[in-house]
Design a protein around this nucleic acid. Structure first.
Lengths: 116, 116
DNA sequence: CTAACGTATCAGTGGATAATGATATGACAG
DNA sequence: CTGTCATATCATTATCCACTGATACGTTAG
């Protein structure tokens, strides 16, 4: 592939930004914990707070991030707000990442020594 | 922690850190550009600099990050150092993310207005 | 050996962001 | 209406990270 092709295919205005943003939503342990709590069930904020042990404002903030990244969706139910994964593929992405980690764990683990 | 431990115990506390780290490697536009340059070919640093337009120290730094995250591998070849994707599944992950984005692009795009 | 080149690292800077406590908004019970 | 609860936002702080220019390291050429 040439540089020009890369420019044409991949550097569409903000495709890279969108991809980066999606992955950024997945790049924080707290958010991954929250997503884990949502894999099986739809939950409200308090339940997530209890499940994760994180502070309530912190959870709300992360949920906003996840919502903006398109990783979760929300619906109001009385005083409660219930969150769930936006798409089954969100869980798939995490699972695929785990499988990749199982293969490349050496490299990830030995972060400091990567000499050839 | 050894790689074996990681494989044995995917739900250990540190697993979240590893997952987060993997996704963090994918969460930056510059790194995604670099990975795009490596999808088709193995390349050395200079070539990547040329393809991406990023500064050489910047590229080296991102490559170190990608290496630590297990997303690329490297091999020395004379004065040059050639980088390639660590696993075909790295490209798969990015492609899957794109497909997810194609479905949820509205939510990702309209970051500021998500009222229910 | 010396020079030139490829790559990595260092120091400094600006900007993003995660966590927390305080507070605001909004809905229900009575 | 009033108080209470669920959630969101604000302000602050500390930390992390991307980028840049300068420089160090290692290899090849001559």
């Amino acid at each position: 592939m040439t540089a020009q092709n890369i420019q044409d295919n991949l550097s569409a205005p903000d495709t890279l930004e969108l991809r980066a943003k999606l992955f950024r939503g997945l790049s924080d342990p707290s958010r991954l914990t929250i997503l884990d709590a949502l894999v099986s069930d739809e939950r409200n904020v308090q339940e997530i707070v209890g499940h994760t042990g994180l502070g309530q404002p912190n959870v709300s903030n992360h949920l906003r991030c996840l919502l903006e990244c398109g990783l979760v969706s929300r619906r109001s139910k009385g005083r409660f707000v219930r969150y769930r994964l936006a798409d089954r593929r969100v869980a798939d992405l995490i699972r695929d990442a785990d499988q990749l980690l199982a293969s490349t764990a050496n490299g990830v683990d030995a972060c400091q020594s990567y000499t050839d």
